[in-house]
Design a protein around this nucleic acid. Structure first.
Lengths: 336, 336
DNA sequence: GTGAAAGCGCTAACAG
DNA sequence: CTGTTAGCGCTTTCAC
């Protein structure tokens, strides 16, 4: 009725608890026949080590936390997948927490993670509440940011400002003179800020004016109406740099529902290079993010810090910034 | 240096461990001032209950397992998100496991989950290895399938065969007489079988012949070549029912890369109704799946079975099947 | 090489 | 209403 424990195995194989423990953990100096007997007992009973007990005793769990703003965004779904894979490979199980980008949910889930005594946490989104990170570090659980930047923790991310500059320079190179910025609808605060900075920087360097930031309503109809109005005047932007691909997809959609066409009437550049962006029907020009590298290096960093254990801040590094690359597709063209 | 424990709280507030435990667990019959003192100590120390210890003692963790075949598929990403939300609301943390549809990864991750002593697991994909489920049930951890069907566990899913029939009947109604089936590339064994069954059933009822199943290569170039060949003859299918939306997107893409156009030269119906399917550029006709209902009912079922605890199979139900609905968009039209 | 013993941090009777 | 007690299943010295 109750799950077999190490005691049951010990009894059945006629050795002591500790011997069983030794074979489970693959200790050295074990008589071969002892090991065999124990192993036999283990699978006769279908014994499975209890990670709860082990973690309690070791004061170190095999759990990692993963905080995601919006799992529904393919970019984050892919990062999540990759991180889970790497974690599993290292023997860790991943507790996933979606925050919907909200600070409250984030705080609550973060608390959950700390109670579960995760050994570390990966943030794919951070609302900026520094106390959270402080409480984690104080509890000795390292935090790393992947594809999100904050000075509160180690992070590995793309150079957002540079990516934005690439995007805007591409548009400028095509001949666009009024290039607007459309922030992504899920506020990745830091990324948005950096991308917006890159945008104005590129404009400034080219000596071009800076059109108003285009904030669109969340729901589809409102978006179309707002866009129709925006695009009406003679000074309407002809090029748009959008904060991320998902938003860019919606943006193009809304634009085209107003009767305009991309790239004929307006050019659009996204950010992330999610899978659908390369579909023939979509062909979105965008800034590529190397998800595999981000995930791998993020996990490496986290595991290193977990391993480094109590020898304090030893592991703390400056933020690692990857070089962005632009992928030119068919959503951009010279202005009319 | 080490995290504060219940003992530290007890000492600081001058009461015993159990009293602290009582206030944490919100026991009744507590003197108000005792509670206050303890509460004060708790946040002075920044105490956080250790879920590991609690779970060990209670022989019941606050962890749920979530097994996903492909988190990269927006349909599963959304289900995962919803399930995590519901789980969190019920106080459970969700351990996510991607299997890539492989039986080996599934077995390995499933083992991980059982070692972590999850209280239950939700399968969004199942490779069919019944021993896994048996080992879980024997360890007293209930398993439910959401949007996947298998007789080994409780499940809540759409009626796949009926959905397939709707799709095919829609094509037939439009005048298509050669309607082929394109299985999804990630083999959801049971769903694929049921959808294929629904497809032939609809064809049979209409007295139409059954074209060969269209199995396409995984990589893009191969797909295009294979399709070009398939579409070449005079008896090429004019209507296609594709196993899921992601595959349908790729299918349309490949078709159009051969120089054909959808829906002019061929009609395509998908399955799932993922978000991108409704984009103006895509407008994929598809079978809608009520993700919210699936997730909610799946979790309800799981929590019920967890709660039902040892009073055995009491909770075991027949599979619940939801009615599918077709969403007609612009990827289907009468044949030329 | 193997066993005995002392906890890890918490809960849950059961006394007081 | 609060404290005492006995573990949950495992790891880890330290003797034998």
């Amino acid at each position: 009725l109750h799950q077999p424990t190490i005691n049951d195995v010990a009894r059945l194989s006629g050795v002591s608890k500790s011997t069983v423990s030794n074979v489970i953990r693959g200790a050295e100096y074990l008589a071969d026949d002892t090991r065999e007997r124990v192993l036999a007992a283990i699978d006769e009973l279908g014994y499975r080590p209890n990670a709860l007990a082990r973690s309690l005793q070791r004061r170190q769990s095999a759990l990692l936390g993963l905080v995601v703003g919006d799992l529904t965004n393919p970019f984050y779904a892919e990062l999540s997948l990759l991180i889970e894979q790497h974690a599993a490979q290292a023997g860790y199980a991943t507790i996933i927490c979606n925050t919907d980008g909200g600070a409250e949910a984030e705080r609550k889930k973060f608390g959950l993670l700390l109670e579960q005594r995760v050994s570390g946490v990966v943030m794919l989104h951070f609302s900026g509440e520094h106390e959270l990170i402080a409480s984690a570090e104080q509890a000795n659980v390292p935090v790393v940011g992947v594809s999100t930047y904050d000075r509160a923790f180690d992070c590995i991310a793309i150079d957002d400002a540079k990516g934005a500059r690439l995007a805007v320079e591409h548009l400028i190179g095509l001949g666009h003179e009024r290039v607007a910025y459309v922030p992504s609808s899920y506020p990745e605060a830091s990324a948005n800020a950096a991308r917006s900075r890159g945008w104005s920087e590129a404009l400034r360097r080219a000596g071009l004016p800076r059109p108003a930031v285009v904030n669109l309503p969340d729901e589809a109809d409102g978006r179309v109406a707002a866009l129709a109005e925006l695009m009406d005047g003679p000074d309407a932007p002809t090029g748009f740099f959008v904060g991320n691909d998902v938003t860019a997809l919606h943006f193009v959609d809304a634009l085209e529902r107003t009767g305009l066409s991309v790239p004929r009437d307006a050019s659009v550049v996204g950010f992330d290079d999610i899978a659908v962006a390369s579909l023939g029907r979509i062909e979105l020009t965008t800034i590529h993010q190397p998800t595999h590298v981000l995930a791998r290096r993020g996990i490496e960093r986290l595991l290193y810090r977990i391993g480094a254990g109590s020898d304090s801040k030893s592991g703390r590094n400056g933020p690692a910034r990857m070089k962005p690359q632009i992928v030119v597709r068919a959503s951009t063209a010279p202005p009319r």
